[in-house]
Write a protein that binds this DNA or RNA. Structure first.
Lengths: 164, 164
DNA sequence: GTTATTGCAAACCATTTGCAAGTGT
DNA sequence: ACACTTGCAAATGGTTTGCAATAAC
């Protein structure tokens, strides 16, 4: 199970797409923004803002990027349609890039906080229908299924420890 | 369109159910808790914590209930399975009582923040399937469909003003 | 040269919490 | 009486923001 994630063919790279977005807003391409976009798209898993700050601090390829800039850029990426908030655990937003890979949703274990990805086209199709029926133009969705993962629901046998 | 909401037959009242929950936890029935539960279930719409505080302050039937107590009680109601967080708008959690009325989800307009309810059994059924396929025990879900409502997506004609 | 961007530290703000006084059981 | 609750004010903690210095264009 390497990088076998559901890659979708895309014409332009995420970085290019972000630069287009910046251009339309008269915003600038800076080394900080570039580093953030590359880091976000180099890793195909959900992440939290703080995690990204750390990853960027680690690989000191560019000059250190401040937390503020990370947060600011995450917001722009979201507006640009390259990123989405997929959940909220422990009061922190969980992000995931949303370009070049199929949209998917998550099962969230209330005990160990593990996120299990899944995707189901029927659900997406159904959401489109519901939206249309309400004159609503759907741009995206956020679906969290809460409950207990297999390990944590197994009665008295080494359930994974919670994060608290 | 009065109280025609999808009422489901329930044996015990929400208040009773909450009292049972309190009992099992050796917690006490206080006028504050009672007032909160009654207020929450007297109104069949989504609401925010602050809104509830105001409604309780308004009708001074009981002695004023503090914000802290409201927050604390909302958490207990959630644990008791009587309430759920259905969305997050403007950095505030949006609650909705989840007992005696069918579960439903929402279309959220990114421009005017309006929430449109909908429910779709097929989606629920499908979620159960997905959960089962992953050995996951589903306890609930949260589904937000983001986009633009009819009014706000109509190009240049009096779109409803945003909240900001 | 202008105008946007950065990092810092301070501000925000919804929600939580410590604590002393009050109250169900 | 005992233990649980309340309101208050203060703390928390993720995220945002004002501002002076700095860098894109």
């Amino acid at each position: 199970m390497e990088q076998q994630v559901s890659a979708v063919d895309v014409a332009v790279s995420p970085l290019q797409k972000f630069q287009e977005y910046l251009a339309t807003r008269k915003m600038r391409v800076t080394p900080e923004r570039t580093a953030i976009v590359e880091e976000v798209f180099s890793y195909h898993e959900h992440f939290e803002a703080e995690e990204l700050v750390e990853r960027l601090t680690m690989q000191q390829t560019v000059r250190r990027v401040s937390r503020s800039t990370v947060y600011r850029t995450l917001n722009y990426l979201e507006e640009a349609g390259l990123l989405r908030k997929v959940a909220r655990t422990n009061d922190r937003e969980v992000y995931e890039h949303d370009y070049g890979y199929e949209q998917h949703d998550h099962l969230i274990c209330r005990n160990c906080n593990t996120l299990i990805e899944f995707n189901n086209d029927e659900i997406s199709r159904m959401l489109e229908q519901v939206a249309a029926a309400n004159g609503f133009v759907m741009e995206g969705h956020r679906l969290e299924v809460h409950g207990l993962c297999e390990a944590c629901s197994r009665p008295r046998r080494h359930p994974k420890l919670g994060l608290i």
